[in-house]
Protein backbone atom coordinates (compact mmCIF):
# COMPACT_ATOMS: atom_id res chain seq x y z
CA UNK A 1 0.00 0.00 0.00
CA UNK A 2 1.39 3.42 -0.92
CA UNK A 3 2.01 5.77 2.00
CA UNK A 4 -0.49 8.61 2.44
CA UNK A 5 0.43 12.28 2.85
CA UNK A 6 -0.13 11.85 6.61
CA UNK A 7 2.19 8.82 6.68
CA UNK A 8 4.94 10.88 5.08
CA UNK A 9 4.31 13.72 7.54
CA UNK A 10 4.52 11.28 10.46
CA UNK A 11 7.75 9.78 9.11
CA UNK A 12 9.18 13.28 8.63
CA UNK A 13 8.23 14.46 12.13
CA UNK A 14 9.81 11.47 13.85
CA UNK A 15 12.88 11.54 11.60
CA UNK A 16 13.47 15.22 12.38
CA UNK A 17 13.20 14.58 16.14
CA UNK A 18 15.53 11.57 15.97
CA UNK A 19 18.18 13.25 13.86
CA UNK A 20 18.06 16.29 16.17
CA UNK A 21 18.88 14.04 19.12
CA UNK A 22 21.65 12.34 17.13
CA UNK A 23 23.15 15.75 16.33
CA UNK A 24 23.05 16.67 20.02
CA UNK A 25 24.90 13.48 20.81
CA UNK A 26 27.53 14.20 18.15
CA UNK A 27 27.91 17.74 19.52
CA UNK A 28 28.76 16.39 22.98
CA UNK A 29 31.17 13.80 21.51
CA UNK A 30 32.78 16.65 19.55
CA UNK A 31 33.24 18.74 22.71
CA UNK A 32 34.73 15.80 24.63
CA UNK A 33 37.18 15.16 21.79
CA UNK A 34 37.94 18.90 21.85
CA UNK A 35 38.62 18.73 25.58
CA UNK A 36 41.17 15.95 24.99
CA UNK A 37 42.85 18.19 22.40
CA UNK A 38 42.84 21.08 24.91
CA UNK A 39 44.59 18.85 27.45
CA UNK A 40 47.16 17.68 24.89
CA UNK A 41 47.89 21.29 23.85
CA UNK A 42 48.27 22.32 27.49
CA UNK A 43 50.64 19.41 28.09
CA UNK A 44 52.78 20.40 25.13
CA UNK A 45 52.76 24.19 25.60
CA UNK A 46 53.00 24.44 29.36
CA UNK A 47 54.50 21.05 30.18
CA UNK A 48 51.46 20.20 32.32
CA UNK A 49 51.07 16.42 32.21
CA UNK A 50 47.69 15.05 31.18
CA UNK A 51 45.84 13.77 34.23
CA UNK A 52 45.29 10.05 33.46
CA UNK A 53 42.08 9.98 35.53
CA UNK A 54 40.67 12.96 33.62
CA UNK A 55 41.57 11.34 30.29
CA UNK A 56 39.91 8.09 31.40
CA UNK A 57 36.73 9.93 32.44
CA UNK A 58 36.54 11.72 29.07
CA UNK A 59 37.15 8.47 27.22
CA UNK A 60 34.38 6.75 29.23
CA UNK A 61 31.99 9.62 28.46
CA UNK A 62 32.75 9.33 24.74
CA UNK A 63 32.10 5.58 24.93
CA UNK A 64 28.72 6.14 26.60
CA UNK A 65 27.76 8.78 24.05
CA UNK A 66 28.69 6.48 21.18
CA UNK A 67 26.47 3.77 22.75
CA UNK A 68 23.64 6.31 23.08
CA UNK A 69 23.98 7.39 19.44
CA UNK A 70 24.18 3.74 18.34
CA UNK A 71 20.94 3.00 20.22
CA UNK A 72 19.24 5.92 18.46
CA UNK A 73 20.42 4.74 15.06
CA UNK A 74 19.21 1.17 15.78
CA UNK A 75 15.76 2.51 16.72
CA UNK A 76 15.69 4.67 13.63
CA UNK A 77 16.69 1.68 11.52
CA UNK A 78 13.85 -0.41 13.03
CA UNK A 79 11.49 2.44 12.22
CA UNK A 80 12.72 2.59 8.62
CA UNK A 81 12.23 -1.20 8.29
CA UNK A 82 8.66 -0.98 9.63
CA UNK A 83 7.57 -0.51 6.03
CA UNK A 84 9.15 -3.74 4.78
CA UNK A 85 5.97 -5.84 4.88
CA UNK A 86 2.34 -4.98 4.17
CA UNK A 87 1.33 -7.09 7.18
CA UNK A 88 3.22 -8.96 9.87
CA UNK A 89 2.81 -10.05 13.47
CA UNK A 90 3.45 -7.04 15.68
CA UNK A 91 3.76 -6.97 19.46
CA UNK A 92 1.77 -4.00 20.77
CA UNK A 93 4.07 -3.40 23.74
CA UNK A 94 7.13 -3.34 21.49
CA UNK A 95 5.36 -0.95 19.13
CA UNK A 96 4.46 1.44 21.98
CA UNK A 97 8.04 1.25 23.26
CA UNK A 98 9.45 2.09 19.82
CA UNK A 99 7.09 5.08 19.36
CA UNK A 100 7.92 6.32 22.87
CA UNK A 101 11.66 6.17 22.16
CA UNK A 102 11.44 7.62 18.67
CA UNK A 103 9.25 10.48 19.82
CA UNK A 104 11.09 11.06 23.11
CA UNK A 105 12.18 14.53 22.10
CA UNK A 106 8.71 15.52 20.84
CA UNK A 107 7.05 14.23 24.01
CA UNK A 108 9.60 16.11 26.12
CA UNK A 109 8.92 19.25 24.13
CA UNK A 110 5.13 18.83 24.49
CA UNK A 111 5.59 18.08 28.21
CA UNK A 112 4.08 14.59 27.90
CA UNK A 113 5.04 12.36 30.83
CA UNK A 114 4.53 8.83 29.54
CA UNK A 115 4.10 5.77 31.76
CA UNK A 116 3.84 2.37 30.09
CA UNK A 117 2.43 -0.44 32.21
CA UNK A 118 3.98 -3.68 30.90
CA UNK A 119 1.59 -6.22 29.38
CA UNK A 120 0.85 -9.22 31.60
CA UNK A 121 0.76 -11.50 28.52
CA UNK A 122 1.98 -11.07 24.93
CA UNK A 123 -0.37 -8.79 23.06
CA UNK A 124 0.04 -9.21 19.29
CA UNK A 125 -1.83 -8.30 16.15
CA UNK A 126 -1.33 -9.02 12.45
CA UNK A 127 -1.10 -5.66 10.72
CA UNK A 128 1.14 -3.16 8.97
CA UNK A 129 3.85 -2.31 11.54
CA UNK A 130 4.28 1.18 10.13
CA UNK A 131 0.53 1.93 10.23
CA UNK A 132 0.36 0.67 13.82
CA UNK A 133 3.27 2.92 14.87
CA UNK A 134 1.52 5.82 13.16
CA UNK A 135 -1.77 5.01 14.92
CA UNK A 136 -0.09 4.82 18.36
CA UNK A 137 1.63 8.17 17.77
CA UNK A 138 -1.66 9.68 16.60
CA UNK A 139 -3.45 8.37 19.71
CA UNK A 140 -0.82 10.00 21.95
CA UNK A 141 -1.08 13.23 19.96
CA UNK A 142 -4.89 13.28 20.30
CA UNK A 143 -4.69 12.69 24.06
CA UNK A 144 -2.00 15.35 24.47
CA UNK A 145 -4.01 17.94 22.52
CA UNK A 146 -7.13 17.04 24.47
CA UNK A 147 -5.33 17.66 27.78
CA UNK A 148 -3.82 20.89 26.51
CA UNK A 149 -7.26 22.41 25.73
CA UNK A 150 -7.53 25.69 27.62
CA UNK A 151 -4.09 25.28 29.18
CA UNK A 152 -0.71 25.84 27.62
CA UNK A 153 2.48 24.87 29.34
CA UNK A 154 1.47 22.11 31.73
CA UNK A 155 2.85 18.62 32.12
CA UNK A 156 0.57 16.03 30.55
CA UNK A 157 0.72 12.63 32.21
CA UNK A 158 -0.31 9.81 29.86
CA UNK A 159 -0.52 6.14 30.88
CA UNK A 160 -0.53 3.27 28.39
CA UNK A 161 -1.88 -0.16 29.37
CA UNK A 162 -2.48 -3.34 27.42
CA UNK A 163 -5.52 -5.61 27.37
CA UNK A 164 -5.42 -9.00 29.05
CA UNK A 165 -7.67 -10.91 26.66
CA UNK A 166 -5.38 -12.67 24.13
CA UNK A 167 -8.31 -12.93 21.72
CA UNK A 168 -8.84 -9.18 21.65
CA UNK A 169 -5.51 -7.33 21.79
CA UNK A 170 -6.01 -3.82 23.12
CA UNK A 171 -3.98 -0.69 23.95
CA UNK A 172 -5.49 1.82 26.35
CA UNK A 173 -4.42 5.45 26.69
CA UNK A 174 -5.42 7.35 29.83
CA UNK A 175 -4.90 10.88 31.08
CA UNK A 176 -4.52 11.72 34.77
CA UNK A 177 -6.49 14.92 34.42
CA UNK A 178 -8.24 16.97 31.76
CA UNK A 179 -11.72 17.23 30.27
CA UNK A 180 -13.82 14.10 29.69
CA UNK A 181 -12.98 12.21 26.52
CA UNK A 182 -15.98 11.56 24.29
CA UNK A 183 -16.07 8.98 21.50
CA UNK A 184 -17.54 11.41 18.96
CA UNK A 185 -14.45 13.64 19.25
CA UNK A 186 -11.90 10.88 18.56
CA UNK A 187 -10.35 9.93 15.21
CA UNK A 188 -13.06 11.83 13.34
CA UNK A 189 -11.13 12.95 10.26
CA UNK A 190 -11.19 10.79 7.10
CA UNK A 191 -7.40 10.34 7.49
CA UNK A 192 -7.77 9.03 11.06
CA UNK A 193 -10.61 6.73 10.00
CA UNK A 194 -8.47 5.37 7.16
CA UNK A 195 -5.58 4.78 9.58
CA UNK A 196 -7.83 2.83 11.97
CA UNK A 197 -9.15 0.76 9.07
CA UNK A 198 -5.62 -0.08 7.88
CA UNK A 199 -4.71 -1.50 11.29
CA UNK A 200 -8.18 -3.02 11.59
CA UNK A 201 -8.78 -1.44 14.98
CA UNK A 202 -11.76 0.03 16.80
CA UNK A 203 -11.96 2.70 19.48
CA UNK A 204 -13.86 2.52 22.71
CA UNK A 205 -13.89 5.16 25.40
CA UNK A 206 -13.50 4.36 29.07
CA UNK A 207 -16.55 4.68 31.29
CA UNK A 208 -14.68 7.19 33.46
CA UNK A 209 -14.06 9.44 30.44
CA UNK A 210 -10.35 9.44 31.31
CA UNK A 211 -9.19 7.80 28.13
CA UNK A 212 -9.79 5.47 25.24
CA UNK A 213 -8.68 2.05 23.99
CA UNK A 214 -7.77 0.80 20.56
CA UNK A 215 -8.74 -2.83 20.06
CA UNK A 216 -8.88 -5.29 17.22
CA UNK A 217 -12.11 -5.91 15.42
CA UNK A 218 -13.58 -9.38 15.97
CA UNK A 219 -12.65 -11.58 12.99
CA UNK A 220 -15.14 -11.27 10.14
CA UNK A 221 -17.41 -14.35 9.81
CA UNK A 222 -16.91 -16.42 6.69
Amino acid sequence: MSPSKNDIQFFGTLSAAMTHDMKNCLAIINENAGLLTDLAVKAQDRAIPVDPLKAAIISEKIGKLVARADDMIKRFNRFAHSMDYDKETVDLEEAVDLVARLAERIFRQDRIRLTVIPASAPCRIHASRFALLHLIYRAMDILCRHQAEGTSDIEKPVTVRFGTDPNMPEICFTQDSGPEIKLESLFTSPEDQALLARVNMNIRTMDSGAGFCLNTLPPARE
Binding site: N24, A27, I28, E31, N32, G34, L35, D38, K61, L65
Partner: peptide
Protein backbone atom coordinates in the same frame (compact mmCIF):
# COMPACT_ATOMS: atom_id res chain seq x y z
CA UNK B 1 23.20 18.81 30.75
CA UNK B 2 26.24 16.91 29.39
CA UNK B 3 26.58 19.55 26.67
CA UNK B 4 26.40 22.39 29.22
CA UNK B 5 29.04 20.77 31.44
CA UNK B 6 31.61 20.13 28.74
CA UNK B 7 31.04 23.42 26.89
CA UNK B 8 31.31 25.51 30.05
CA UNK B 9 34.52 23.69 31.02
CA UNK B 10 36.09 24.39 27.62
Amino acid sequence: KDFLDIMSER
